[in-house]
Design a protein around this nucleic acid. Structure first.
Length: 279
DNA sequence: CTGAGCACCTGAGGGC
DNA sequence: TGCCCTCAGGTGCTCA
């Protein structure tokens, strides 16, 4: 479910209300998620110092630990005033100030991990983050770095955009939207992209992710904010989920195809496969 | 190195 | 009402 804008939205909503609160109790379903879940006992009496995001992971910095949450496809983090264990609650944190953080995940593709700060003083040294690529909203996400990464890959650009070891946080929705905005065919190989195409992709990554964040992310079926409300970026899609609907730019019916087991949406007119590399 | 296929799960929606 | 099928914002593994 959630891509960078959705996870960033959750981070921004949780930060003001959770930071400086103390974990005083917890409930764990004990069920296996993407991985076996850890023992949460060490979290007791830990203060939430800060909350970060890396790729699609939420990172809770505690006094002595890092609590790492991935929402998978259907994960939710809901703040509530009552302890309410629901059908798909996997972790319920009881916090000082009579508030509760409920992690629900129906499909269980998410993950919960704990690392000690003694072993990993900086969260970037945690194994989960070791091989991750560039953060699109960081200062060091530069055109020249993106150019160097894309131009050497003989892989379809859609798959490159979704590879978090190259660029972080772009999933199936935003990859399609970024390529439409950039007028690049999803199957064009990295090595065949022109300078102009790379530049356009670079700027549209930033523009579209920021726009999605400003709209509170996309709510298609599962994603909700920490208060249960929905984001509105889904009303602004140009291609995703618009198969056979007319292109908002040229009225051509939107096409879809499979790439790496995921559905890619594109406009066959606006995103023609240009074969020449240098124009 | 590359891509396709599949596996991990539950739930929603369509067709009959 | 029920069954069977397909599909879904993610990731990571095998195999050719």
């Amino acid at each position: 479910m959630p891509e960078l804008p959705e996870v960033e939205t959750i981070k921004r909503q949780l930060t003001p209300s959770m930071v400086n609160k103390r974990i005083i109790n917890y409930f764990s379903s004990g069920k296996k998620l993407r991985r076996e879940i850890p023992d949460f006992e060490p979290l007791l009496n830990q203060m939430i110092v800060n909350i970060y995001r890396r790729n699609k992971y939420l990172i809770f910095e505690l006094d002595n630990y890092w609590l790492i949450i991935h929402l998978g496809m259907t994960g939710k983090l809901i703040e509530e005033n009552l302890a309410h264990i629901k059908k798909h609650t996997h972790l319920l944190l009881s916090l000082s100030g009579q508030s509760f953080l409920n992690f629900e995940d129906a499909r269980r593709f998410g993950s919960l991990d704990i690392f000690s700060k003694q072993n990993y003083p900086e969260y970037n040294s945690i194994p989960l983050f070791k091989s991750l690529g560039l953060e699109p909203l960081d200062k060091n996400f530069t055109l020249s770095k993106v150019d160097k990464l894309l131009i050497k890959k003989s892989t379809a650009i859609k798959k490159i955009l979704m590879d978090s070891n190259i660029i972080c946080g772009i999933g199936n929705i935003y990859a399609s939207e970024i390529l439409f905005a950039s007028k690049v065919h999803p199957e064009k190989l990295g090595i065949n992209l022109t300078k102009k195409e790379i530049e356009s992709i670079y700027f549209n990554i930033i523009k579209i992710l920021k726009k999605a964040i400003s709209l509170g992310g996309s709510s298609i079926s599962d994603f909700v904010h920490t208060n249960g409300r929905k984001g509105t970026m889904q009303d602004n899609y140009f291609v995703y989920g618009r198969y056979k609907e007319s292109c908002k730019n040229c009225s051509t019916p939107i096409e879809k195809m499979a790439q790496g087991g995921r559905t890619t949406f594109y406009c066959p007119q606006c995103q023609k496969m240009s074969l020449n590399k240098d124009v």
